[in-house]
Amino acid sequence: GPIILDTYRVIADYSKTSKHEITLRTDDLVEIVEKNQNGWWFCQCENKRGWIPASYLEPLDGPEESEDADPNYEGELYTTCTAYKAEQDDEISLEPGQTIEVIHKLLDGWWVVRKGDETGHFPSMFLQKAGKEC
C-alpha cells in the first residue's frame, strides 16, 4: 500500500546552514521521511527535500504530547567519540574517550548524560555505545 508519512508543523523559522538542509518558515507543514537519532530529520515540504533539526518541529496531531522516550535513571553506558565544550548552562563538556551514562534520549539529538556528579545535555552524534568502535 501507499506509505503514509507523519506530518509535522515547523514551530520557528529555520535557515539552512549546510548543503543538504532546507530553509523553512514557522507554520510550514513537512512530511518526515527519516528520523535520525542524532536529531536531524529528513523531510519534504512541497518541492523541497532535506534535513532539518527535529527540535524545530512538532507533530501536527497531538502537539502537546511529548514523543520523547522516558528517562532511564539507571543510565546506559556510552563512550564519547568527539569532544564537545558546553555552550549553554544545561550542557556538559566532555573530552573524547570518556565513558558516561545516558539517562534520557531526547529526539532533538541532545541527550541527557551523567558523568560522576555532573549532568547535562550532550550531542548524541558524538556518542557511541560503550565497547563499540567510534
Binding site: 543538504h20 542524532n38 529528513f42 533539526p53 527540535s55 539529538g109
Partner: peptide, 22 residues
C-alpha cells in the same frame, strides 16, 4: 537515495520550545 545527515550537531531547540518543556 537520502544523503547523509549534516556532520555537526543540530541546533538546540528554539527558545519557544525550551519554555514549553520547563
Amino acid at each position: 537515495s537520502i544523503k547523509q545527515p549534516p556532520q555537526n550537531p543540530p541546533p538546540r531547540p528554539p527558545a519557544e520550545m525550551r519554555r514549553k518543556r520547563v
